[in-house]
């Protein structure tokens, strides 16, 4: 169960994820979610993206991005539920759903990137 000693490590992941998310997610999301689909900027072709993601360094970057961003979400969302909605009686359940979700997402990212062909 959640011991006191877990908290600094979880907070460090939250903080690292916050830095990572702040620096790179806005530009990624603007391009991928808006500028490319709406045709404001020509989207990169399949061949280029595919060979680019195959590079080990790109995959490492994508994995670290997913891992830290998910743990950032898990930590912050956990406290949103505690403080915002005041559902403190579900502490354990929230704890396992948040970090469990982050772990599942990280494993999924690792699986996809490791087996990327």
């Amino acid at each position: 169960m959640a011991k006191q000693s877990n908290e600094p490590a979880l907070w460090a992941l939250f903080s690292a994820g916050g830095v990572m998310a702040a620096f790179v997610i806005p530009v990624h999301l603007f391009l991928l979610g808006l500028a490319f689909p709406l045709g404001w900027i020509p989207a990169p072709g399949y061949e280029y993206l595919h060979s680019f993601v195959r590079l080990p360094l790109t995959r490492l970057y994508l994995f670290v991005l997913c891992f830290l961003a998910l743990f950032h979400w898990a930590h912050r969302f956990r406290y949103t539920l505690y403080d915002g909605l005041q559902i403190k009686h579900l502490n354990e359940l929230i704890f396992f759903c948040c970090y469990g979700g982050a772990i599942l997402g990280t494993v999924w990212a690792g699986y996809l990137l490791w087996n990327f062909r």
Binding site: G33, A69, W73, F77, G105
Partner: peptide, 23 residues
Amino acid sequence: REISSVFVAWFVVVLLQQIRALS
């Protein structure tokens, strides 16, 4: 500010969908 974390997670979902589709 706290809710923004949900959208950070959503971005990861979109990114992973992209990687899966590319693969």
